[in-house]
Nucleic acid binder design. Structure first.
Ligand SMILES: Nc1ncnc2c1ncn2[C@@H]1O[C@H](COP(=O)(O)OP(=O)(O)OP(=O)(O)O)[C@@H](O)[C@H]1O
Length: 747
DNA sequence: GTCACCGTATGATTG
DNA sequence: ATACGGTGAC
């Protein structure tokens, strides 16, 4: 069977094993994603499984598209033996998507069973934040004292763990005195009720409501269990509890499940991902007859030996890591595709296999310059295409200087993330129009557009309609419809709202028959959005016009490629798009992205910029050992993306957000042992930052001050001599202390 | 009442 | 750099 010829023996076994659940817990580059892809093709082609009965879950839409494409190619490949007719055409493709879009599609069909409308809208995190701000206003909570993003985080964490607001309130009470949590509970409840009124779901609801649906309506669950007889999940180490519950429910009937992941690459604990899901997978299926098939592969087909060494050296510093996990190794059977088979240090130094490079730079500008220069050199001298190079960093804001350097040098580049296309204000405005047309209950979006572009309906008028609607227990849109009954409006204001109402009536009609593309075109023209922007005539307004044009193109393209051309489906696509999804990996350009976005990808050349204490590891992770280990895994993920060329750079001093950060080289640098390997380590004499040594005075540490006595560190910043800490002393008073001047003792 | 402008505060990682 | 709240002109 020749689709299996691209696999090694153990991969092949995993592809062919269908007698019981499969767990693949394997290192980077070991071919996990490849196994899933081939397994899907194998199920269809060799076992005659109906593609309709297969669900594969990926981490991003982009990964889903790629997998679809590969599966399609495997299915249509000329096999000589079998094949679905001479055209090799595939009649149907399996369902390959992210958790979020999978759940969105399920809910679109069946959510009415738990009391929601099927035409719900999906709120992204900006919408979520705006709605929470509204809640704070209505609950009379001062948003300066209690920040909205903190509530958003609390609510997300709760939902990721399937805790609805009722349970949240109960847990809060059980905990006793916790003012902040009590407040969060109130906000959560209010927020959730508002979502319901708006007929909206946020991202986390998509999963949570699906689980709720499955639990409350067994016949719905059964329907999907019969539909998804074979389930495959990629990147399983980064699933959270709700995703775990979803998967487990679906798989519980047939138990044809295959999960794949690597706990050393778990980097999403901050949004409740839990590696126990993958580590305890065997327990979940302990009663299966042949027991769970477990595969632990550590052969890394991606990287060269020196890169593998760095990764191995680094990851053992994670103390919570399973001691029996082992190291990744170069596969014996690896074909000399682009690199040589086995390599020793001597060969590496001769330049057959490039040695990883560690480079210190005085500041972030020179760092960017250096990265750009090296990229250009590799392109010219070694003929490495730009699209096979990437620059990774910890925080989006770091991309700016890099962009500038690449732009100035006229080297093509793409930035993944930062502000995604669909997060731009002008795009969100138009999307809000569409949402209201489809789901008039969406008051958040309605409020957003009532005066966009400015049409004389100001804050006060809107507030009056809101009050009127609340008093009469109707939605804001109902309030707008009954504008004649709203008291205290000037005739002019009433007239303006009536015009707006008529506009919306007209477009609600049009939306029934027109495709999204045409609808958006007409709408933008009629409301004079572009005219308004032209009037503003600034640099940003020009960009906005471009973006709007791009949106119209996107909508037309959508119409062409999709069967269901409704604005509804378009909106769904738009809401679920992620940063990485819009990245064009075939463009001839260097890719700039965060380490998080790099997961699952591979490049010939990888630069990791900003390898400094405070950035990688990020300063917010200093105080928790667990978080520090996650930062280390992040670094591990970055390193293991590189096939042949790896550069680690760090600076002495970095300007960001108008501040200057004086950094030490990241502890991870020393841990990788790159200094011993690198050809040009510490190139810039004297300007290199010293390599990090562990700070003794960390948050949480108890100290004794010669004057004030015993106290606990609650805040710490700076390094070495310059370190400043904030301490709460036994009496309760807080003091800021510079280590330089105080003779502190650690206890 | 509405809108455009200016000052101030404030920044991780994401589907 | 962007998101807010306050201010003055219409
Ligand atoms: N048996 C094999 N023979 C040759 N190349 C392979 C084999 N298996 C995998 N590869 C190659 O190794 C690289 C990594 O494969 P893949 O992305 O499937 O690994 P992965 O385990 O999912 O990686 P990661 O966890 O790091 O994202 C790919 O370029 C793939 O083509």
């Amino acid at each position: 069977m020749d689709i299996l010829k691209d696999l090694n023996e153990r991969q092949r076994e995993a592809v062919e094993w269908v007698q019981s659940p499969v767990l693949i817990l394997s290192g980077p580059g070991s071919g996990k994603t490849r196994v899933i892809t081939y397994r899907i093709a194998y199920l269809i082609k060799e076992l005659g499984v109906d593609p309709f009965n297969i669900l594969a879950v990926t981490f991003t839409n982009k990964a889903a598209d790629e997998m679809k494409e590969r599966v399609y190619r495997l299915l249509t490949a000329e096999t000589g033996k079998r094949g679905n007719g001479e055209t090799g055409k595939v009649s149907e493709m399996p369902w390959i998507a992210t958790f979020h879009s999978t759940c969105a599609r399920i809910l679109r069909h069946d959510i009415y069973r738990i009391g929601f409308d099927r035409n719900f809208v999906i709120y992204d995190d900006l919408d979520q934040l705006n709605l929470i701000k509204e809640c704070l206003k209505e609950l009379e909570i001062d948003p300066k004292e209690y920040r909205a993003p903190a509530f958003a985080a609390a609510i997300c964490r709760a939902k990721e763990n399937l805790i609805d607001y009722e349970s949240y309130i109960i847990y809060t009470k059980a905990r006793g005195e916790d003012f902040y949590r009590e407040m969060a509970a109130k906000v959560y409840e209010h927020y959730q009720k508002k979502l319901f009124k708006n007929n909206a779901l946020d991202f986390d609801d998509l999963i949570m409501k699906t689980v709720e649906l499955f639990r409350e309506k067994p016949e719905v669950l059964e329907k999907y269990q019969e539909r998804f007889i074979h389930i495959l999940v990629d990147e399983y180490q980064d699933t959270n509890h709700s995703q775990y519950a979803f998967t487990k429910l679906l798989a519980s009937k047939y138990k044809n499940i295959c999960v794949v992941g690597d706990e050393d690459q778990a980097i999403y604990a901050f949004r409740s991902a839990d590696i126990r899901n993958i580590l305890e997978f065997e327990k979940d299926y302990a009663d299966c007859k042949p027991e769970v098939f477990v595969l632990n592969m550590m052969e890394d087909y991606r990287s060269t030996q020196p890169i593998i060494d760095l990764a191995n050296n680094l990851i053992v510093y994670n103390e919570e890591r399973r001691k029996d996990k082992g190291k990744i190794i170069l596969p014996k059977d690896k074909k000399p595709a682009s690199s040589t088979s086995t390599v020793d240090a001597e060969e590496a130094s001769e330049g057959k296999v490039p040695a990883p490079v560690l480079q210190a730079l005085p500041n972030e500008l020179e760092e960017a310059e250096y990265v750009m220069d090296e990229a250009r050199r590799l392109h010219r001298k070694e003929r490495i295409p730009y699209h096979d190079m990437a620059v990774f960093y910890r925080v989006n804001a770091q991309s700016r200087v890099l962009e500038d350097a690449f732009r100035k040098a006229r080297i093509p580049y793409n930035v993944v993330g930062a502000l995604g296309f669909y997060e731009h204000r002008e795009i969100k405005d138009i999307v809000a129009y569409l949402r209201v047309l489809i789901n008039p209950k969406d008051s958040l979006s309605l409020k957003r557009i009532m005066n966009v572009p400015p049409r004389g309906i100001g804050k006060v008028t809107v507030q009056k309609i809101v009050d009127f609607s609340n008093k009469n227990k109707i939605t804001l849109w109902e309030g707008v419809k009954k504008i004649e009954n709203v008291r205290g409006l000037s005739p002019r204001a009433q007239w303006l709202v009536k015009n707006f109402r008529n506009l919306m009536f007209k477009y609600m009609e049009l939306a029934k028959n027109l495709g999204v593309g045409e609808l958006i075109n007409k709408l933008i023209k009629e409301i004079g959005y572009i005219k308004q922007l032209e009037k503003e005539d600034t640099f940003t307004s020009e960009m906005r016009i471009e973006n709007l044009k791009e949106l119209m193109d996107a909508a037309h393209q959508f119409e062409e490629k999709s069967e269901n051309k409704s604005a509804q489906v378009f909106l769904e696509d738009v809401s679920l798009i992620s940063d990485i999804d819009t990245w064009d990996d075939k463009a001839k350009a260097v890719t700039l992205m965060t380490l998080h976005n790099a997961k699952g990808l591979e490049f010939d050349t990888v630069f990791i910029a900003g390898m400094e204490e405070g950035f990688l590891p990020h300063s917010n992770a200093f105080s928790e050992e667990k978080e520090l280990e996650e930062e280390r895994r992040l670094c591990y993920v970055g390193i293991t993306r590189a096939k042949r060329h790896l550069y680690l750079t760090y600076t002495d001093r970095r300007r960001l957000y108008g501040n200057t950060y004086w950094g030490l080289a990241s502890r991870f640098i020393a841990e990788t042992g790159v200094e011993g390997l690198a050809r040009r380590s510490l190139g810039v004499g004297g300007e290199a930052a010293p390599i990090f040594r562990r700070e003794r005075f960390k948050v949480g540490v108890t100290i004794i001050h010669p004057d004030f006595g015993k106290g606990k560190i609650i805040k710490a910043e700076g390094f070495g001599e310059d370190r400043k800490i904030e301490v709460v002393f036994a009496g309760g008073e807080k003091k800021k202390i510079a280590l330089k001047y105080a003779n502190l003792q650690r206890i």
